[in-house]
């Protein structure tokens, strides 16, 4: 590492938690609770905690029901923070999304039974400051969400 790079290192260390969850629907709640527990060190407001829990629920539900079709395969939840900014990553190695832009449109859903709202990505975008989606058919999906806590 040269001197130039060293200067750009953040002063506060990034604290990272990595949790593996089996893709069963009962783990949606566990994912929310785990992220909420991590967040307590950032002294969030009740609204901030609820916002993040909702966004996490959307991303994890997508991974479980779309990515893995509830097969029980492992999804990865990474939570980190630096300088009061929370970052949550939800990663699956499932079917992937053919057209990410289309999937992010409000009300877009692949569900044919009419019981899914298609609001998942809209909720993630509403409740977090930044949402990035990387996906490729056959290799999986990574959702990276950021939110400044106590802003």
């Amino acid at each position: 590492m040269d001197t130039q790079e060293r200067k750009q290192e953040p002063l506060e260390r990034r604290e990272t938690m990595r949790v593996e969850l089996e893709s069963y629907s009962h783990n949606e709640q566990l994912a929310r609770v785990v992220v909420a527990a991590y967040m307590t060190r950032l002294n969030p407001t009740v609204d901030e905690t609820e916002d993040v829990k909702t966004a996490v629920s959307e991303a994890v539900t997508n991974a479980i029901i779309h990515g893995y079709q509830e097969s029980g395969e492992t999804l990865i939840l990474r939570v980190s923070s630096v300088g009061g900014e929370l970052q949550v990553e939800v990663e699956d190695h499932g079917v992937g999304i053919p057209d990410v832009e289309q999937a992010r449109q409000p009300l877009y859903t692949t569900s044919t039974e009419g019981e899914r709202s298609g609001m998942g990505f809209t909720f993630m975008e509403t409740f977090m400051d930044q949402v990035e989606v990387r996906s490729a058919p056959g290799s999986g999906t990574l959702v990276v969400m950021k939110k400044k806590i106590g802003a």
Binding site: T54, S57, T61, T109, M119
Partner: peptide
């Protein structure tokens, strides 16, 4: 105390 977009899908589906 908690609801995500699943709840919205349920309400719209049941309304229809």
């Amino acid at each position: 105390e908690f609801m995500d977009s699943t709840g919205i899908g349920i309400l719209l589906g049941r309304y229809k």
